[in-house]
Design a protein around this nucleic acid. Sequence first.
DNA 1: ATAAAAACAGAAATCGATATCAAATTATAA
DNA 2: TTATAATTTGATATCGATTTCTGTTTTTAT
Lengths: 335, 335
Amino acid sequence: MTNKIKDVSAKAGVSPTTVSRVLNNSKLVNEKTKRKVLQVIEEMGYIPNASAKNLRSKKTMTIGVIVTDILVSYNADIIKGIENMANSLNYKIIICDAQDQKEKEIDYLNLLYNRTIDGMILVTSTLSDQEIIKIAEQGYNVGVIGRNIDHDLVSCVYNDNGKAVQEVIDHLVENGHKEIAFISGLKDAVDSYERLEGFIYALKRNNISFNPDLVDNGDFSEYGGYQAIKRMIAKGQSFTAVFAANDEMALGVYNAFKELDIKIPEQVAVIGVDNIRVCSYVSPRLSTVAQPKYSMGALMTEKLIDQMNENKYTSSRTFKVSSTLLIRESSDYKI
Amino acid sequence: MTNKIKDVSAKAGVSPTTVSRVLNNSKLVNEKTKRKVLQVIEEMGYIPNASAKNLRSKKTMTIGVIVTDILVSYNADIIKGIENMANSLNYKIIICDAQDQKEKEIDYLNLLYNRTIDGMILVTSTLSDQEIIKIAEQGYNVGVIGRNIDHDLVSCVYNDNGKAVQEVIDHLVENGHKEIAFISGLKDAVDSYERLEGFIYALKRNNISFNPDLVDNGDFSEYGGYQAIKRMIAKGQSFTAVFAANDEMALGVYNAFKELDIKIPEQVAVIGVDNIRVCSYVSPRLSTVAQPKYSMGALMTEKLIDQMNENKYTSSRTFKVSSTLLIRESSDYKI
DNA sequence: ATAAAAACAGAAATCGATATCAAATTATAA
DNA sequence: TTATAATTTGATATCGATTTCTGTTTTTAT
């Protein structure tokens, strides 16, 4: 039988209340009493039961994190940032791998409703803005990474996609490219849309007219990127650079060009987004847009916990972080 | 104010006990009553409070997972296996990133002691066998992945390192290699030791005498592997194949050879362990030993949960899984 | 028709902590 | 030396479910 607070209080000759106070660093207890109690706690090896504490205090010091897939390196980096920040603030995290199923994602939200967790972080969620807002409006603490939802109750940490795309296009144009293909991700992903918009805008800024035939969809997968290139070539489109909305697709692009015996970067430049590990190991090394994933996770966590504890007054709950263009061999060539 | 079980029972005209029975699928409730209660629950959108349930039932349906580093792909794969299996058995997982600090690892064990979790899975833990056994003997449920601890109370899922190493050496010998260098991981890691032992044994089986100068330590990191090769070459050792105890070090080996302008696999064969993603993207593609990481995580989880619920009688609690040698370009060459 | 067994339902205790409120003690001020 | 304030302590209610134990009703067997 493990010790309970009563056992401690009995042995220390004080009330459970006092023991509780000592445990929680209340200043409403005399220094001498405190020492005595601490000594007894030490002696008995007493450890307070978390469930009892959670029930009474209506907090679990736990936050949930829903990701589409733990293995996607973008998610893993973010999770690491979340975990480390949470840990440093004495929080724990429950990981929910939605396995790309919206249904599972919705299932996991139950952790919020049944008070297993104090708040939930959604990483590139498949839920709609409206769905997320509804959760927040019911009084639950939600944060979203990778998207900007315009609502007072939803904390967001997202990327300045526009600026990143701008940089990419400027860089390509600077290297002499005028026909730039764009491989977007899933049609309905917010990121895809934003990047496409940014793409069009960036072209305009460089006085290049937008050609819709140079845009295709690669659903964020390696094979999807491969297929997209194949389709464009089949349609007879010509281009000297490819900007893929993520690195996975860019790798698929590599495969396609290898098959077609088209040289990167001499004949075509390729740039991806995410800076996954493989980028630096493929040949030629892949230029990419790096997002501060770890920091995004950490920042989101910090802000969400602030929000949960209403610690600080924050006028805004959305935070835009910026990306960095990493120019590597795959695009570092003037045509 | 959210609804409590009392609210439901009042509205349904039954006792809280009955509602609880319905919630927990007890057969001690009449079909008609059950339907009525379910309807009220539905109407009120009642969701039982997890903390209360945990406290009373002395279970949290949560297991903890301590890893040295979430980002290491070996760990990430295992975590995915754990999460998915846990989820399918209605368990949740709390992820603990020990950031390679033993101190943190010990800290996280508190989740076990304060009953935040029902069991803990240690992935390549830095704790000693004795330390782990002690935890188990105190009545806590612990499982270990990547190591075999000989104790009734500790569940283990580990790799048949000996067999894997054997296969690697056989493969190399078959390709004409006689001077094989071995780069081990951290000196005190169990895996390293086992692999080294297996290495020596495998050489003997192939009638090759063991040369201690062809063994060096690379501490599992890319740069460590690089340094190890540099040291061997500096010492004037000659060899035609390198077996690194993990892929990271093998990548370092690649760097060293590139620098020295030594061709893989023509002049030297290289084989790693882990099958990280990069293996298939480097040039030449890296041969490696693949462990069924996802399955190991899933298996461990299944067994640990069995153990926690004393569901099944299991004569043994240790499970040895076997690896597969993936022969790729880096070693697929007869000298 | 009656005894025994099975099925169903609820009252009250309980899990183990914290919160609330009231009281006792000590310190300070007038 | 009181009156008052500040400090310290504890009794008790409470968080919200499940468990235990008891009682009632229904079914089955004889």
